[in-house]
């Protein structure tokens, strides 16, 4: 089976190498944490997979076999749209906001049960508004569905961004330091929420925080100036949850990762 997404190659900024040759493969259904200090090209790798402009010279190969959704440190909310409007932004931008939602990508989310022969008589898929309302509720913002981003806290904005990411309903989700700008408590809450709601999807989490990698990574890859190294597989994560932030083995892993980053 081929990897859902892979990056093989090296990159330069002008004449300076950004990272040594790397080979990164995501595994379906796993959270892969790409951990490393700032400026070693973590985000560049993520943007290569997303197909976005990177501003670096990349020599190599990027493959991806499924559509992605993106969530970054800057929630990228649209200031003139309320919470629901931001969650349904993708539908608005694709011109499908008023059309009923049909999952285009099997594997993104299991389609609803079809009743009757040949799926006839099956319940129609929920429309964009219904889905958005459900997701806004899932991230705990039901009472703020009509607030503008300016009236939300940093953590609430990232909740909106998470709901928007879920609304896209893509099998592969790219998270670019999504919780870095949050305070420690909000960050831990967002990690729990993301682990729960993104369960079953393939996730690439770019982070500079060893604690975050220790809580969320099924696999942890350490990116340093010298190259990419795969960390020994941590103990399995509880289903649809982050590892507890205060468990001794998580703290030990965090300390290990920190040593790895300092090395």
């Amino acid at each position: 089976m081929t990897a859902p997404a892979a990056v093989r190659g090296r990159a330069w900024v002008g004449k300076t190498p950004l990272f040594a040759p790397v080979g990164l493969e995501l595994q379906a259904g796993d959270w892969t944490c790409l951990l490393g200090p700032s400026g070693v090209g973590k985000s560049t790798i993520l943007r290569l997979i997303a197909g976005l402009e990177t501003g670096v010279r990349f020599e190599g190969q990027v493959t991806r076999d499924r559509p992605v959704a993106l969530m970054a440190q800057d929630p990228g909310l649209i200031p003139w749209l309320d919470v629901t409007g931001n969650v349904t932004l993708g539908a608005r931008l694709r011109g499908t906001l008023r059309a009923s939602f049909v999952p285009k990508y099997p594997g993104g989310r299991p389609p609803g049960p079809g009743k009757g022969p040949g799926g006839r008589g099956a319940e129609p898929p929920p429309d964009a508004a219904t889905r958005a309302a459900g997701l806004v509720e899932a991230v705990g913002l039901a009472d703020r569905a009509h607030h503008l981003p300016a009236n939300l806290s940093g953590g609430q904005r990232q909740r909106v961004a998470l709901a928007r990411t879920l609304f896209e309903d893509r099998p592969l989700v790219l998270l670019d330091e999504p919780f870095s700008a949050l305070d420690a408590r909000t960050r831990a809450q967002m990690q729990d929420l993301a682990a729960r709601l993104l369960d079953g999807r393939t996730v690439l989490l770019v982070t500079h925080d060893p604690a975050e990698a220790a809580r969320l990574g099924d696999r942890i890859l350490l990116l340093r100036e010298t190259g990419l190294t795969e960390w020994p597989h941590p103990a399995p994560r509880p289903k649809a949850a982050a590892r507890p932030y205060d468990a001794p083995e998580v703290l030990a892993l965090q300390a290990d990762l920190m040593r790895g980053m300092m090395a």
């Binding site: 943007r47 997303a50 197909g51 976005l52 559509p67 992605v68 959704a69 993106l70 970054a72 800057d74 929630p75 990228g76 649209i78 932004l89 993708g90 931008l93 694709r94 896209e168 790219l174």
Partner: peptide, 11 residues
């Protein structure tokens, strides 16, 4: 960030 999102969303 908004333009990046839009591109990934297939706009």
């Amino acid at each position: 960030p908004a333009l990046d999102l839009a591109q990934v969303m297939g706009a």
